[in-house]
């Protein structure tokens, strides 16, 4: 105790010595004499460092792109892993969640307000027109299966091409609808074509559907026409 004291360059309390002298007796009675300076075991320090390494690994592995827009935690670096093509019906079902509030899960719409998708000529008909509808939305009087609707169909341009194609494929093949799949390329070219055209009216949409598509976007032959 006094060794420690002498080797210590800083004198702490003048009366410290006496404090210790008075209490030697008390300290001997303690169950387990300790002095508060048990050193940190080396194994403990090594374990901590190994653990830190694991943390670093996790951070590198799940760090995404380390950019503001890297929403996916994998992959990073290395050869780009191409996401396997999604089943359009599955993806379409997910996207359709956004349509359900208006067109209903049954695809029958709400009479007088929202038109049906089941059996609709717009759904089963020209794919280019369907993509155009989804891309820009519709406003104003609109006739579906002989009924007139007058409300607003929002634009879905913020979805990816793949997602629009998937939801189109989904509505074309559900509730008894049967038609071929919507090609992603077609959605891509329609997106360019209709860019800046604004919401469709009944008339402008018909006009658009009547004009010939640019050569690249001709739908494959055999698509069911109304």
């Amino acid at each position: 105790m006094s060794d420690q004291k002498n080797s210590d360059p800083i004198q702490m309390h003048p009366d410290e010595d006496s404090v210790f002298r008075i209490h030697t007796a008390a300290m001997r009675e303690m169950e387990e004499p300790r002095d508060g300076i048990s050193p940190t075991p080396v194994s403990y320090i090594i374990t901590c460092f190994l653990y830190l390494l694991c943390g670093g690994f996790y951070m590198g592995y799940y760090g995404g792109t380390w950019k503001g827009d890297g929403l996916a935690e994998r992959p990073i670096g290395g050869p780009a892993v191409v996401a396997p093509p999604q089943d359009p019906m599955k993806l379409g079902r997910e996207i359709f969640n956004s349509c359900m509030q208006c067109h209903q899960e049954s695809g029958l719409g709400v009479p007088g307000s929202y038109p049906p998708l089941a059996g609709s000529e717009y759904v089963l008909g020209d794919k280019r027109r369907l993509a155009a509808i989804l891309m820009n939305g519709i406003n104003g009087d609109f006739v579906v299966k002989g009924q007139t609707y007058n409300s607003k169909m929002p634009s879905w341009a913020m979805l990816e091409d793949e997602e629009i194609a998937a939801v189109a494929t989904y509505v074309r093949n559900t509730w008894g609808n049967r038609a071929d799949t919507m090609p992603i390329d077609l959605v891509k070219s329609v997106r360019k074509e209709v860019d800046g055209k604004g919401e469709w009216k009944s008339a402008t949409l018909a006009e658009f559907a009547a004009t010939a598509p640019p050569a690249a976007a001709v739908p494959p032959p055999g698509a069911p026409k109304k």
Partner: peptide, 8 residues
Amino acid sequence: QNLRDASR
């Protein structure tokens, strides 16, 4: 230095 004193 002298952590012993600090703990006391």
